[in-house]
């Protein structure tokens, strides 16, 4: 791959991933956090493809973006949706 495209894609993906991770942490709504966390995993799987690891990318895509997010949503459903200080509707 052209190394300029490689670098540009990597910079773009890392900036998006770190921004999504920060949004995961500061959001008071835990369901929103779980979905943003799935976005972090999705971009991580893209980076795995960029680093020539397609096997790992397949595992990360289905585990990180589907299963982890969903078991977190199930756990939040058994507890409370909002962090303390977040609005209770």
């Amino acid at each position: 791959m052209n190394s300029l495209i490689f670098l540009a894609l990597a910079i773009l993906m890392f900036i998006t991933m770190v921004a999504l991770a920060v949004a995961t942490v500061i959001s008071k709504d835990l369901i929103k956090s779980a979905i943003l966390l799935a976005g972090v995993s999705l971009i991580a799987s893209f980076l795995f493809v960029l680093m020539r690891a397609p096997d790992v990318a397949m595992a990360e895509a289905s585990i990180g973006s589907a299963l982890t997010a969903m078991i977190m949503v199930y756990a939040i459903g058994r507890t409370r949706r909002f962090e303390e200080g977040g609005e209770e509707k």
């Binding site: 991770a21 991580a44 795995f48 982890t68 977190m72 507890t79």
Partner: peptide
Amino acid sequence: RRNLIKAIMGLVIIETAVNL
């Protein structure tokens, strides 16, 4: 964060970073 589920989300983020 004091919220336990938020702390577990932090663990998942660290795990992703270590795998990368």
